[in-house]
Write a protein that binds this DNA or RNA. Structure first.
Lengths: 193, 193
DNA sequence: TACAATATACTAACACCGTTAGCTTGTCAG
DNA sequence: CTGACAAGCTAACGGTGTTAGTATATTGTA
């Protein structure tokens, strides 16, 4: 009745908007359905489960992050590229916290599609490190270190863990990035010998 | 009827055991009550809400982590202390992943008791860094960097994000710690000038 | 143009969740 | 011994994701 011909894409889109504005924690299928002027059960004509929808939103989130990262490193090299990439990462987490949380909550395990989508996040980092004379093995390790630093920092700040001291969080962040660059330079020296 | 005289401590204890064995995600008050041979509503004679219980378990988790950390740095200095502390942190996250998740999910914001409990996690790091000649301000920043690295690494590995390359995760971890020590040494030099 | 098939919506219900109100009853202190 | 408190209970509310079965608008085809 008064059927509006909703598509799967419409639903994913609406879910993303809802998560961005209301927060991931308060998301529910019933509320989503209500916004689309539909009953919750009707959503199942387009999706097979809540998990699947969640995964779909995860693809979007990863592609958004990748987009921002690629733009950040364009035409840059070495420490400039790293700093710019880190800034992009950091700002994404701050500007779109709910979308960032979606990425974190993604079940990387056992889902091949998401697993391979994870490569999208790795690539920009590898590119940014290309200006350093590193072995491929070093780069694989360093990419993990970079992601650990960025993710760790963003999620701890988001969780409110950084309010314990009266020093600027931005300064802490820059120190963290500096530490990574030091490690890059140090690894470069090691690779030369 | 067959009243067993459960105490608040009994309930918290049972909840901890249940989370460790079954996982945080599948925890529920009803299941907890069932294990105690009680109805869910009866739990409310001892706790005021699910959130409160969650917070209580958080205190336990933080105290456990602190215990492990203090033991790790006892009688050690400088890089040896840092490495040992990092190892303790890392092993805690790996050995007791569900309890570690409880710490992460703690609502640091707005809860003063938890906020101050957070200092328990900071202290061992500050102590471990005491052997370096750093200003107090530097230490506040570096403590954030350390926690970011550790938390970021543990949670990404736990999420399965590190399966994308065929290089040893332990090697990546050691490289991350080495990066932090490099940053410490570098900061020390800066403080001297 | 008519009809069949499909896509889109619905209602009703199930099993779970946290939580509250109100009741019973065992236990212990005065 | 008795009154008060503590510790349990049942029943219910509103919330969640999900399934089964039904109706109907749209669309493709004969």
């Amino acid at each position: 009745m008064a059927r509006q011909g909703l598509t799967r894409a419409d639903i994913i889109q609406a879910a993303i908007e809802m998560i961005e504005s209301e927060g991931l924690h308060s998301f529910s299928l019933r509320e989503l359905a209500s916004r689309l002027h539909i009953k919750a059960a009707s959503l199942y004509n387009h999706i097979t489960s809540s998990d699947e929808l969640h995964t779909e939103i995860g693809y979007y989130a990863i592609s958004e992050l990748k987009k921002v990262q690629l733009a950040a490193i364009a035409g840059k090299e070495r420490s400039e590229a790293i700093e710019s990439l880190a800034d992009a990462y950091y700002r994404f987490g701050k500007d779109r916290p709910e979308i960032y949380k979606v990425i974190l909550s993604l079940p990387m395990v056992k889902n091949d599609a998401i697993h391979s989508a994870g490569f999208d996040i790795v690539k920009p980092i590898m590119t940014a490190m290309a200006g350093y004379r590193l072995t491929r093995e070093q780069m694989m390790h360093l990419q993990r270190v970079f992601r650990s630093i960025m993710h760790g920092f963003i999620s701890q700040e988001e969780a409110g863990c950084f309010r314990q001291f009266p020093v600027d969080v931005g300064d802490s962040y820059r120190m963290a990035v500096r530490g990574f660059i030091l490690l890059l330079e140090n690894s470069e020296k090691e690779a030369q010998t």
